[in-house]
Design a binder for these strands. Sequence first.
DNA 1: CTGAAAGCGCTTACAG
DNA 2: CTGAAAGCGCTTACAG
Lengths: 338, 338
Amino acid sequence: MKKIRATVLDVANAAGVSVATVSRAFNKPEAVKEDVRNKVIEIARSLGYSPNPAAKALRLNKTNILAAVIPTLDYAIYAQMINSFQQVINDSGYTVLLLTVGFDNNNIYERVKSVVERGAEGVLIVGKIYDQKLRDFLKEKNIPVVCTYSYEEDPDFAFIGYDNYAITCNIVNYLSDLGHKRIAMVAGPSKGNDRQQARIRAYKETMESHGLADHLLIFESTGGFAVNFGAEVLHKVTSEYPETTALICNSDIFAFGVLSEAKNMGIPVPERLTVIGHDDMEIARLIQPPLTTVSMPVNEMGKQAAQSLLGALADGNPVFGLKLDSKLVVRESSGKPQ
Amino acid sequence: MKKIRATVLDVANAAGVSVATVSRAFNKPEAVKEDVRNKVIEIARSLGYSPNPAAKALRLNKTNILAAVIPTLDYAIYAQMINSFQQVINDSGYTVLLLTVGFDNNNIYERVKSVVERGAEGVLIVGKIYDQKLRDFLKEKNIPVVCTYSYEEDPDFAFIGYDNYAITCNIVNYLSDLGHKRIAMVAGPSKGNDRQQARIRAYKETMESHGLADHLLIFESTGGFAVNFGAEVLHKVTSEYPETTALICNSDIFAFGVLSEAKNMGIPVPERLTVIGHDDMEIARLIQPPLTTVSMPVNEMGKQAAQSLLGALADGNPVFGLKLDSKLVVRESSGKPQ
DNA sequence: CTGAAAGCGCTTACAG
DNA sequence: CTGAAAGCGCTTACAG
């Protein structure tokens, strides 16, 4: 029952020209006499003609599809990044195909492959690609890839992200300078998540460099990024590691859980416990006390990632990488111990 | 330089069969002798063959693409809904094409059209379609459409959403029962946004029904949904309409702004001012005081919307609509006046 | 059970 | 400046 859409032939017949001329009127207008061109375009419009994208893709071997493969949309920083990414892409006549795959990059081979098989000419990924099979696949198919959120010098893929390791070093240094000695980390699941891994590594190594390695305490969530885990950790810390004076949360979500539960338990922040988050979500500055956290330019990341992919596809420009700034935004949830 | 992808002909040649047999081995396996089929599939795999989606789409007149056209991804409820939507869609062998268009549905004709012209077989939209040209276009092309977040009985398009009017009536009734008489509304931009319009209408009419129409006070944001607007409104209210005892915010975002600024200004909530939000974002229950707000099943909405579209496409089932529940979640930000 | 051939809707050398 | 024709990679009646 589907209404047959007008084809190039319909337009040609109605205009009394060949299909070649119709095609040219749209794709190479200067090669068609003006009055013919105008007539064709007018008739095309009146018939509601638009070129069949599948036919075009087949003929030109170009789908104009780019894929965004991300952990989830149910987390503000990814949603925001894709929001920006998508705007640039759509404005460029490309289309964004969206796929969520969770946080473990070890198991994305099939999903990314499927997205390429569905015609994606390029793909945005969050984090690093571990799987050698996937790396080989993408290189062999010559698919431009941009990895976001992390930054690495990688010969094969462009990274547009920030230095997760360095910023976490900064946090530990900041806390150490403040006088904190018992500092714990609340981490997200680190399996297949290089951002978490980098932060954990930074925590360990920087603590060590300050001679604080006798109090390495890492709580790694098993259930993703949930507020509850922050609350859980706070209970554990107060009962089992009460000497702890600072909590580095690798997500604002965890920090919100800690702060909320601290209030319930009557633990003053930052007097008794310093809390640090990560991501600088909008709400971070609105809660009480406002949250000290890490801010990174999420929208910029999305836009640059889009440009990177478009550039690679357009003039065969080598896909470029970019290290963006992240910074520790100090607010009232952090302070000197005691 | 692009690696030529294996075609059905490559597989056929390598297997010593015809392309028809290769195609059948995948699409109608029972019609191919087992050993032949196995050989073909094995060879296809070794060549990394996957069918060209453009060729398939052209031949079958079926793109397997569905579009999500939403205001923005930079707002949790939309991002979450699309997260769920996308999961169901992708699991069904379809692909999600994403496009953001802002909050004003008066101007989405071109964007939705473009998405259909890019091959979308069905489309998810947020809210109601005003534009008659767009309605005609979608009907004429016979494109299944599901409108979300709102609920209406519409002969042309399925709605999977909730009753924005009714829930706002509930809020006003709740406040009136508590003894509030001076109630104001903080609204998002209502132009082209039927959810806001419904809530504003509900506010006006219910206030009237309680004989409170002498204090109709609506603050409509011009700049989208920003925390700042909540703070601004609070200033205006305290200076110009200090008799106000309750603020109905049509977004948690506004409510967060109000709550945060109330704290700064030393205005006790709910003793001096009751604050109500909308959307029940995760953070709503974590702030102080926890926010009374409207909760709706966002993920369910996304899933059902996906099912609706898939159903319409699969067996030509009429697209179904669904009125989902929303409810007022009462927390400590609301109470009796004074 | 298998293959030869047509055709989906486009674009683009090629010829005029 | 324009048209006839080939061909992109598939699937599917049709014939055997």
